[in-house]
């Protein structure tokens, strides 16, 4: 069992790698560009509210043949901001 987990089946690698490649091919967005997009997005939002930076999750998700940019951006609560 452990052995099985260690050496992942090649078909599984193929599928996982393709999943990522296809999302980037379809959106024409390289991984580095996606990182820049995330930084810009957070910078804009930070102009209005405070963000819990460590908990931010932004990623591209495939849904059939369409992709969506999914962002989960927790905001720092007002009370904590005052007390902090």
């Amino acid at each position: 069992m452990l052995n099985f987990l260690k050496s992942k089946r090649s078909a599984t690698s193929a599928k996982e790698r393709l999943q990522l490649v296809l999302i980037h091919d379809r959106t024409d967005l390289a991984p580095a560009e996606l990182d820049a997009l995330k930084d810009d997005l957070l910078a804009v939002i930070s102009r209005y509210v405070e963000i819990e930076t460590e908990q931010v999750r932004i990623r591209l998700e495939g849904d059939g043949r369409s992709q969506r940019l999914v962002a989960d951006i927790p905001l720092r609560s007002k009370t904590r901001r005052r007390s902090g």
């Binding site: 089946r9 090649s10 078909a11 599984t12 193929a14 599928k15 393709l18 999943q19 296809l22 495939g62 059939g64 043949r65």
Partner: peptide, 19 residues
């Protein structure tokens, strides 16, 4: 090869291409 996990299955390919 599919059975041995060394080839993408038809289901994998369909999942990826979604047509």
């Amino acid at each position: 090869m599919v059975k041995h996990g060394d080839m993408l299955s038809a289901e994998d390919v369909l999942d990826l291409l979604a047509i």
